[in-house]
């Protein structure tokens, strides 16, 4: 069985939240360690620019 998934089930989640902030808030209420990523659409949502950036990075 997979180690990292097993670890998640046994130790419980520590979360990086990418998107809806309410999800992070409700995890924090349950005592979970959460970091909220201040996400914005990459390259202003321009698909071609996004692909280009991915190639460069």
């Amino acid at each position: 069985m997979s180690d990292k998934f097993k670890e998640l089930l046994e130790q419980g989640p520590q979360v990086i939240n990418i998107g809806v902030q309410d999800f992070a808030a409700n995890l924090q209420i349950q005592g979970v360690k959460v970091v909220q990523l201040n996400w914005v659409p990459p390259a202003g949502g321009d698909r071609e620019m996004m692909d280009l950036l991915d190639q460069l990075l």
């Binding site: 520590q14 990086i16 998107g19 999800f23 360690k33 970091v35 909220q36």
Partner: peptide, 28 residues
């Protein structure tokens, strides 16, 4: 509701929470 910390990248988030084991993704 609190304010979101200014964490701009996944790598930066991982330095703040090195034992993170789950990404919850709800972007478009």
């Amino acid at each position: 509701s609190g304010t979101a910390a200014a964490v701009r990248s996944l790598d930066e988030a991982l330095t703040r929470l090195p034992r993170a084991n789950l990404a919850v993704i709800s972007v478009p």
